[in-house]
Write a protein that binds this DNA or RNA. Structure first.
Length: 268
DNA sequence: CGTCCCACCTGATTGC
DNA sequence: TGCAATCAGGTGGGAC
């Protein structure tokens, strides 16, 4: 589900609500694939810890913990349908809840994930993530990521070990705004095209963060509110509809197993 | 190593 | 209406 703007919205929302709070108890569901670290280790590391801050790294929500036993971070990857909610204890637990952190004031941080593609883990060092940060990367470094690569530029944008945080919506939207066909070989884009792509990507991400992300079906923030960037989607989810720039029908194809949307006239 | 494809899940929507 | 097929904001592992 969530890409960089959605994960950032969630992380900021959770941070504002629970920063400084103490975790007094932890419950986990026992569904094995949800837990990348052993469940008992997660419970042990979180119980009694203070939440120092919550931030986004790539598509991961990172909770920095204050503990007498030493540094640790709690990592929440939301997969396709994961939600991280801060709720009063009276609010009924949603179906598919896989972890609940109870805070000293009685509120709960809840991880809910119907499809169970999300993953929870703890690490003992500061988490940096696999790839470069797209919101701040410069032209030089951005261009270097794609040099010599034969894969389609869309597939390269989705590769988290190159750039972390870009997913299917923002790959399609930024390629449209840069006027680049998603199927073009990443290594064959010109310097000008790469500069346009970097700028388009950063503008799209910044605007989406402003609007609280895109809510296509499942996504909500820490308070359960939807985002609004889907209103500004130019191509994603608009197959067959008219291009907002030239009126041509938006095409939808499958590229690297993902639905891919583009304008055959505006994107070359 | 780079690239491709599929499996991992549930739920909503589409089509017969 | 009912039921099966298809499709989803993601990743990771195996095959080549």
């Amino acid at each position: 589900m969530p890409e960089l703007p959605e994960v950032e919205t969630i992380a900021n929302g959770v941070n504002e609500r629970v920063r400084g709070a103490r975790i007094v108890s932890v419950w986990t569901s026992g569904k094995p694939q949800t837990f990348k670290s052993p469940e008992n280790e997660i419970e042990e590391v979180l119980t009694g810890a203070r939440i120092e801050r919550v931030r986004r790294v790539g598509k991961t929500v990172v909770v920095t913990l204050g503990r007498e036993q030493g540094q640790a971070e709690f990592l929440v990857h939301l997969g396709m349908t994961g939600r991280l909610l801060v709720a009063e204890r009276e609010v009924p637990l949603p179906a598919h809840t896989h972890a609940v952190l109870t805070l000293a004031d009685g509120r709960e941080v809840r991880f809910v994930d119907p499809r169970r593609f999300g993953r929870l883990s703890v690490v003992r060092e500061a988490y940096l993530g696999p790839g470069a940060e797209p919101t701040t990367i410069g032209d030089e470094e951005f261009a270097k990521l794609f040099r010599g690569r034969k894969v389609a530029i869309k597939a390269a944008l989705l590769n988290q070990s190159l750039l972390h945080g870009v997913g299917n919506i923002y790959a399609d939207e930024s390629l449209f705004r840069a006027g680049i066909r998603p199927t073009r070989a990443a290594g064959k884009l010109t310097r000008t095209e790469l500069a346009r792509l970097r700028e388009a990507l950063q503008k799209v991400l910044a605007r989406a963060i402003e609007l609280g992300g895109s809510s296509v079906s499942d996504y909500v923030d820490a308070e359960g509110m939807t985002g609004y960037f889907q209103i500004e989607h130019a191509v994603y989810g608009r197959g067959g509809e008219a291009c907002k720039v030239c009126g041509t029908a938006i095409k939808k194809m499958v590229l690297g197993g993902r639905g891919t949307h583009y304008c055959p006239v505006c994107q070359r």
